[in-house]
Simulated assay, not measured.
Amino acid sequence: MRRFLREHSLTLVFGGLFLAALVGQFFAGHADFNERQAALGQPLLSLGQYLFSADFLVDVAENWQSEYLQFFLYVTATVWLIQRGSPESKPADKVGRGTEKDQQIGQYATESSPKWARAGGWRTAVFSRSLGTAMLVLFLFSWTTQWIAGWYANNSDPLAEKTGLGEYFFSSDFWNRSLQNWQSEFLAIASMAILSVYLRQRGSSESKPVGAAHSVSDESG
């Protein structure tokens, strides 16, 4: 058990932080929602009612979709785009999809390679793009959930103009929710890419070794 916890500590710790933050958001969001309802003379919601409300769902979904968009763009863009000196980037001579030898597929697959990496054909082609595909599917699912929940929450607001689902997709409320999250994700990626060129975090896989030259792109600490 101790070995399992150690070997999976990154996922377990951040999974725990996610759940703690989600619970905190739920209680804070419930209190904020009822304060606004009280100010408008509208009925308050119990904790159970708020848990399954469109207001809570849209707040959660709009954050999730931006995170998955960030990772989808990041894992696909870094195939071709580089930042010299960043450990988040490949060196310039490795831009592109890589050779079969680099990727350990085809005749270069080993016995320990994943089954679909050894299979060849369409299965290897699908597996070769599975991470980006998964992130794209999760983004589209979360964004669609935000769209539908946001539309329902908007139409439940007595002060908001009622719209159809298609109309809501082009509304300022929907795009404000989306873009305010997207811009922060894009800023975070750009900041990490450039700051990791010149700054270090000893022992982190996201950082170069402390003594590595600023121009080195593909060494980890």
Results as ranks from 00 to 15, higher is better:
Y152K: 07
A92C: 14
Y198E: 02
D32I: 12
Q146H: 11
L179I: 11
Q65L: 06
P114Q: 09
F52R: 07
G120F: 14
L187I: 12
E161A: 03
P91G: 05
V210Q: 09
F4D: 00
S191W: 15
S86P: 02
S171P: 03
W122C: 13
Y198K: 01
I148S: 01
F71Y: 11
D32S: 03
F33I: 12
F127A: 04
L12K: 06
N154C: 15
Q183Y: 14
F174V: 12
V126G: 10
G48K: 09
L12Q: 04
Y108E: 05
H30L: 07
R3C: 06
Q103Y: 14
Y68R: 04
F72D: 00
E219K: 13
S184H: 08
S178I: 15
F71H: 07
K101Y: 08
L17I: 10
H214Y: 10
A39K: 10
V95K: 01
A149I: 15
S128Q: 06
L51D: 02
K208V: 05
R2L: 13
M1N: 02
R177H: 03
A160Y: 06
D32M: 04
F174D: 00
W147M: 02
D173K: 11
Q103N: 09
Q201L: 14
D102C: 04
L51F: 15
E62A: 15
R84T: 09
A21Y: 05
S207F: 05
R84W: 03
E100H: 08
Q83D: 00
F14G: 10
I105Q: 06
L140V: 09
L73T: 09
Q42I: 13
G15I: 08
E206A: 06
A190E: 00
L187G: 03
L131K: 06
Y50S: 01
Y168K: 04
L138R: 08
K101L: 13
Q65V: 07
F52M: 03
M1G: 00
G221C: 10
L45Q: 06
P209S: 02
M1R: 10
Q65N: 03
A188M: 05
N155W: 09
T145I: 05
A20R: 07
W122I: 06
Q25K: 14
L5F: 10
A212C: 11
V216M: 05
E62V: 14
G211I: 14
Q49W: 05
P91F: 12
R36K: 15
D218P: 07
V197R: 04
V75L: 07
F27C: 09
K90E: 00
E100G: 02
P158Y: 12
R200P: 04
F14D: 06
F169I: 08
A193S: 06
E111Y: 10
F18M: 08
G24Q: 06
G85M: 08
E167Q: 12
E185Y: 09
G132F: 11
